[in-house]
């Protein structure tokens, strides 16, 4: 029995020797080393996580937060600026409208004033013409009165002369035209 076992062991060792590539220790597999590497890695992981990854990732987060905030602030400021721009625009428009209105008012007032002045002038002119007309009437009436008065005298004078002269036809006509001429001269005289 022992002989068989030892021969099997011998065979195995013989085979192992014949296939040296199978010797895993030749590649350096070593339990304690493996455990050492595992511990080493876990320690490294822990230290880095605590002292390097977490703090710096937090910084990265803070920074992206900060960037986001400042972008938002910039957006807000831009919106505000746009808003105030709108307000200014509105005010300008309002002012423009107000100016337009004032101008319109002034123009209206001027037109009204002109109209009034025109009316006034027309009225003045009419008054003046009226007065002139009545003056003329009066003058004419006075002249007619005077002519009428003078004509009576003239007729009497003419009649005197008619009577004094012989009443021939020719003399008669001469007399009449003479009287008329004198009468015309008399009536024209005060007018001239």
């Amino acid at each position: 029995m022992i002989a068989i076992e030892s021969s099997i062991a011998g065979l195995i060792s013989h085979l192992a020797g014949a296939i040296p590539l199978l010797g895993i220790t030749d590649l350096g597999i070593n339990g304690p080393s493996l455990i050492a590497y595992l511990i080493n890695f876990v320690l490294l992981l822990g230290i880095l996580t605590l002292f390097a990854y977490k703090p710096l990732l937090r910084v990265l987060d803070q920074r992206s937060e900060r960037i986001r905030e400042s972008l938002e602030a910039a957006d807000r400021a831009r919106e505000e600026a746009a808003g105030s721009q709108q307000v200014i625009e509105d005010q300008l428009n309002e002012a423009r409208r107000e100016g337009q209105r004032l101008l319109e008012q002034a123009r209206e007032a001027a037109a009204r004033f002109q109209e009034e002045q025109m009316d006034q002038a027309r009225r003045d002119a009419e008054t003046f013409v009226e007065r002139a007309r009545s003056d003329i009437q009066r003058e004419r009436d006075a002249a007619v009165q005077e002519v009428r008065a003078n004509f009576g005298d003239l007729a009497i004078t003419a009649a005197e002369r008619v009577i004094r002269r012989s009443l021939d036809r020719q003399a008669h006509e001469e007399l009449i035209s003479q009287v008329l001429e004198e009468g015309e001269q008399a009536s024209a005289g005060p007018r001239a």
Binding site: I24, T25, D26, L27, G28, I29, N30, G31, P32, S33, A36, Y37, N40
Partner: peptide, 16 residues
């Protein structure tokens, strides 16, 4: 090579 179960500080471990 080191046997599979024996502990020693190897040069690779030092470099790690």
């Amino acid at each position: 090579p080191l046997s599979a179960s024996k502990f020693a500080v190897t040069n690779t471990l030092i470099s790690a």
